[in-house]
Nucleic acid binder design. Structure first.
Lengths: 141, 141
DNA sequence: CCCATAATAGTGTATATACACTATTATGGG
DNA sequence: CCCATAATAGTGTATATACACTATTATGGG
């Protein structure tokens, strides 16, 4: 029986990556009944909130590499959750949720809220309010 | 000019993933002169510290999926940084750093320390000491 | 007005990751 | 002593990610 069970590493990058990986698994698990991963949910959540957006605008909002987003959009468009409503002849795509996409978002949002509440309960509201600005600082480095 | 420049998301999973991604890029950049990524450095750091280990033991120490580790070991073994010193006929592999691996570790450790110091300077020692236990809590969820 | 540049989208390729599964060897309970 | 199970390692496949690059269209300065 190892006594060093899940002690933090001296490497703070590894600590952050382990936490990120663990939390991603929790959100993915909670969302699994909806058929969406947290990264897919993140995309449709942003589209639901910010209305029609070009690929570049959406990538910028999510702060995800645009070329990553291009790949991630594929199954969501193939599944009819996201549609392109750009005018004929426009060079820009204008992505927005279809009715099916809106319904899927509302369905998945319940599971996402479960995950959010789970984290808040387990960590405590105060800890979470401490954590978030620190994560934001790291993102801005 | 967007005024919502890098504000945290309401989604705490996304906040954590963004921070993890940003910090990974910083560590990868600092390490790039050594030719190692932070995930490769993590592997040789653990081997340097914990001596010869089987694949399963090493995966358990790093808290990385064993099958992921199997793939990540490939280039490090091909490059002669890691060698298998198991006895002939043993079913277990016994991985340890070669002399070349030890030298590479020492070389890369300098860059890793740069990254560690960079984070501590930018975030502040106190913030870091607040952050690490919170990350550990999340990993244990 | 036209061409160099910017804006936009996408592809080729590579790394990092893990789940489901297979293969092989070790081992202990009957 | 032997076979069911555990321990160990690896492969097939899929998702998530981003860098370097290409292709196409828009646009503004001369």
């Amino acid at each position: 029986m190892p006594t060093d069970e899940k002690k933090p590493s001296v490497c703070n990058c590894l600590n952050l990556r382990r936490a990120s990986s663990a939390l991603t698994r929790i959100y993915d698990d909670k969302l699994s009944a909806s058929g969406l991963s947290i990264s897919q949910f993140s995309i449709i959540k942003h589209l639901n909130y910010y209305g029609p957006l070009s690929v570049s605008e959406l990538a910028s909002k999510i702060r995800l590499d645009r070329t990553t987003l291009v790949r991630s959009l594929k199954p969501l468009e193939a599944n009819g959750l996201i549609i392109d409503v750009s005018q004929k002849g426009s060079r820009n795509r204008q992505l927005q949720l279809s009715d099916k996409g809106i319904a899927k978002y509302k369905e998945a949002e319940v599971f996402w809220k479960d995950a959010q509440n789970y984290l808040e309960e387990k960590l405590g509201k105060e800890n979470l309010e401490t954590l978030v600005p620190l994560l934001s600082m790291i993102e801005r480095l």
